[in-house]
Design a protein around this nucleic acid. Structure first.
Lengths: 313, 313
DNA sequence: CTCTCCTCAAGGCTGAGCCTGTGGCTGACC
DNA sequence: GGTCAGCCACAGGCTCAGCCTTGAGGAGAG
């Protein structure tokens, strides 16, 4: 049983509403025989008349009466199809699909999401917190549309923007003395270090860098305590259990509120972050807008709160 | 903004479900480039991509994700369109639209409707009780599909079956003596008559006939009482207020239950009934079936309970 | 490095869908 | 009662949408 065409439904509904084929044809901007023909084709494919043709006007048959509301619903769905497409493009609808590193909420996500939502209140926002490699994988195979990752990153199949944000790894301690000057690797090796697990995992750039520096200095860097989250490591440091290494912007609010001291490393370690998308660069309007806004928020953060020198809060 | 075609939606949904254009094309029994082209046309008309083409498989864009359920609903409506047409033709759905004279329920409609409903339980039944001229008008201008009317009738634009039912006008009284023999017009003129209003209206065949007979006999027929309904006239006759004229089948159950006596007229007056439809004879399957069943029920009534001679219940 | 699978582009064909023109019917109006 | 106006169906012709086949280009898998 073949499905009717959209045109057939349009003509059917118009004819039923207007009451004559001639009038309906005029409304649809076609010649009357064309509309008659389409109706005839439709009736033939259904095996049942839709109208009884009287000399002056059209009457819906019982079949026609039953089918009219269905045709109207079908056309309404068709219209909502194009309408929804328009809404997605104008950000009245849609979904942001974005991946970040776990600690992004500490300085980036709250502002970003709040501001985006204020601009586009009907757009759904799905932000997934993963590590950079996982974000890259998710973007690669389409589970996410875009993300922000720490460099360097395996960019097969991906489009990578230049670095959009730089953060400095800083040494944090309760003892202002220990934060009086930049900390080198040999000093670091003597301190009781609390490191967060994510930062110590195998594919973490910071771990690779610290290990390399330690080896070059003939040292071994053994953390006193390893925990899952950077915030947890900072909390322990604040209570004097040990010292910690943390990205400045991640730790800034805790450092300030708990009166911790911090110092850059020597030589300094700077983490660079960039946006990734699929290589073809296609993104939904919602995600594209989200990325643009993220860029602006990151620039604002970078200009207002740089970590250029060590100090105490 | 042009509406998508049904084919475009089918291909879109198939491609989204299967995950490749080639697979979807195979499922739709078309060549792969044809499907690719339709998707491209759809995307162009929307001004937005639906899929991101990766080397191995397809990914829905955000727009595609939003539109997929709408497309599926639209197609479901399309399918239910043809499905509903089928159901109307197989009497799984539909509406009977039928006009009868007012008193038909007294011997015809109850059985007819009960039996029809038992056979086709989902079909709606709209039976309108009017006088024959009104039924004819309603069929003429499409408010009803068919009806049963008393002959003769103005059959402009109508298709009239041969008489399908004959009923006899009988004289009804509480006095067996008065019903001992057929009643002629001069006798009738001496009796206290209770006539129902409908039967006395200007375009009623019975009124015309009685008036003609009376005039030919040099008499005037003046009813003692006129009421609206035949059943009311019969009730008054049963209480001895006067005598009445009634169609036999209309009055039969009341005559029998109230022990009334009845006699045919002399010469007898027989009312003939026939079915009418629009001249082109088009009826919904439901109404056509209803008419067929009405025919059978009327034949059953005629053969089991004829009014051939007068008598007392 | 080759093999395979997919997308995409080009060229050609068929028929769906549109047009104009015409004839027949019916109701309205003079 | 004759004419006119409005509606529908039918016929013939045209155009392009949608399909096909063929072939090229690209990316992952073995």
């Amino acid at each position: 049983m073949p499905l009717p065409t959209v045109r057939q439904l349009q003509y059917f509904v118009a004819a039923a509403r207007i009451g004559t084929f001639a009038g309906a044809a005029a409304e649809q901007h076609i010649a009357q025989p064309s509309l008659s023909e389409q109706i005839a084709v439709l009736e033939k494919s259904l095996g049942s008349a839709l109208f009884t043709r009287t000399s002056r006007r059209l009457l819906l048959t019982d079949t026609g009466k039953q089918l009219l509301p269905i045709a109207e619903r079908a056309l309404a769905e068709m219209r909502s199809f194009t309408e929804m497409s328009r809404r997605v493009q104008t950000l009245e609808e849609g979904t942001v699909s974005f991946g970040t590193f776990n600690s992004a909420h500490l300085y980036l996500l709250t502002d970003l999401i709040r501001e985006f939502h204020a601009l586009h209140p009907s757009v759904r926002i799905q932000v997934t917190g993963l590590n950079s490699a996982e974000v890259a994988d998710a973007v690669r195979d389409g589970r996410l549309e875009a993300g922000i990752v720490q460099l360097p990153i395996d960019d097969r199949e991906l489009l990578l923007t230049p670095s959009v944000f730089a953060d400095q790894v800083v040494y944090v301690t309760t003892d202002p003395e220990r934060a009086a000057a930049p900390v080198d690797i040999s000093t670091l090796a003597t301190r009781p270090l609390i490191l967060s697990e994510a930062r110590w995992s195998n594919d973490d750039p910071l771990r690779v860098l610290l290990t390399t520096r330690a080896q070059q200095a003939g040292l071994e860097l053994v953390p006193l305590i390893e925990v899952e989250f950077q915030t947890h490591a900072l909390e322990l440091a604040a209570q004097g259990v040990g010292d910690s290494l943390v990205s400045y912007h991640v730790g800034r609010s805790i450092i300030e509120s708990r009166g911790l001291s911090w110092a850059p490393l020597d030589p300094p370690i700077t983490e660079h972050y960039a946006f990734i998308t699929r290589r073809d660069g296609t993104m939904s309007p919602a995600t594209a807008q989200f990325v643009r806004l993220a860029h602006r928020v990151l620039q604002r953060i970078a200009t207002t709160t740089g970590a250029t020198t060590g100090g105490a809060a």
